[in-house]
Design a protein around this nucleic acid. Structure first.
Length: 347
DNA sequence: AAATCGGGGAA
DNA sequence: TTCCCAGATTT
């Protein structure tokens, strides 16, 4: 009998596994330490739709400040949102804290896929990944890498997202009972370094012999993705309101729902809702334009004009004066960090 | 089923 | 520039 797909992959992984801060070396069991499921969970949430390179410094920062899930559970919303600033998809940070508090209440992470799936911020992928990687349970772990590898391996040419069902079923057939965590991570390493989206390195692939997509030619065309829609242009205005000779700036906290939810920010004209940017600032006075910054989101391309006002009055609504010298510690999302940078450069 | 929700690295 | 990434949640 020839070696199975999972055997070939695991042998390849033993030699080529990436060394990452949230990982154990190939062949090792996850340490029997409550801090380990915590680290696996934290990394998995950070890695949702986010590259390894982007996550590394945030993972280091979070584990240094909050070494355990109990420590994170007792942090304030503001601390966590601020630490997450710049990583994107901020609902993840809100769910991260909700989840940490639920887990602390439970006395630790549940160790089955079903129970993990009930926690905030854990969908099908993340629950399966934690069950496999942190607890060694067999689980069918399907992320974008696995989707690509499996679609090619089995030549599944049905377009996404309809193909997900067939892809998951095919992934199930090659998932071994043993070394679940290694297998899942091996598939991801293969997807990120060998079976890449653009130019797959089939000559280096341990599964090349078995790959129906390669046999059929042009494996890079799989999986078939739906045509993307055009990203609309939006305009908006942010307000740089200072007092005391520009030493303090007025910051607000955005509502928990919607774009950049729960993040500290510059006040703006409500461009997220109105899309025209024609609104006015939370204060009357002699506004001057500082120019604009461009910022790309997944579903909108924004031109944000920055208007400045020096005042001794209190703006309308909730907010706080923040020392401009410490603006880097304010926990601004990248969009507003860009706007602040523009304002500082204008002086 | 489709829309929403960030940001940066790589080609 | 465009594409895409260890997706989840809401509508």
């Amino acid at each position: 009998m020839t070696a199975s797909i999972s055997d070939n992959l695991l042998t390849w992984y033993d030699k080529h596994a990436r060394d990452l801060p949230w990982r154990v070396p190939p062949g090792s069991a996850a340490p029997n330490d409550p801090a380990w499921p915590y680290r696996v969970w934290l990394s998995e949430v950070m890695l949702q739709q986010t590259t390894v390179a982007a996550v590394k410094p945030y993972f280091a920062k979070f584990t240094a400040i909050w070494p355990t899930v109990e420590a994170l559970a007792s942090a304030s919303d503001e601390e966590v949102m601020s630490a997450w600033a710049g990583l994107g998809y901020y609902s993840r940070a809100r769910n991260l804290l909700k989840c940490a508090r639920a887990v602390a209440e439970l006395g630790g992470f549940p160790d089955t896929e079903t129970e993990l799936r009930k926690l905030p911020g854990l969908g099908d992928y993340t629950a399966a990944a934690i069950a496999a990687i942190a607890f060694g349970r067999r689980a069918v772990v399907v992320d974008a890498n696995v989707e690509r590898v499996v679609a090619r391996l089995f030549a599944i040419d049905e377009p996404l997202p309809k193909a997900r069902k067939a892809i998951r079923a095919a992934a199930d057939t090659i998932t071994p009972d043993a070394r679940s965590g290694d297998f899942a991570q091996a598939m991801m390493d293969l997807g990120s370094h060998v079976c890449t989206s653009r130019a797959p390195r089939c000559l280096l692939c341990p599964l090349a012999e078995a790959c129906a997509g390669r046999k059929a030619g042009e494996p890079e065309r799989l999986p078939v993705k739906p045509a993307k829609k055009a990203v609309p242009e939006r305009k908006g205005t942010a307000f740089w309101i200072t007092r005391a000779s520009g030493s303090e700036v007025w910051l607000v906290t955005r509502p928990d729902t919607g774009m950049l939810g729960g993040m500290r920010a510059l006040p703006d004209d409500g461009w997220t809702a109105r899309a025209d940017g024609s609104g006015t600032g939370p204060l009357a006075g002699e506004w001057r334009s500082l120019g604009a910054v461009r910022h790309g989101f997944t579903h909108a391309q924004l031109t944000l004009t920055v208007m400045a006002l020096e005042t001794e009055h209190e703006p309308f609504g909730e907010g706080m004066w923040w020392p401009v010298s410490r603006i880097g510690d304010a926990g601004l999302a990248t969009l507003f960090a860009k706007a602040a940078q523009l304002a500082l450069a204008a002086d």
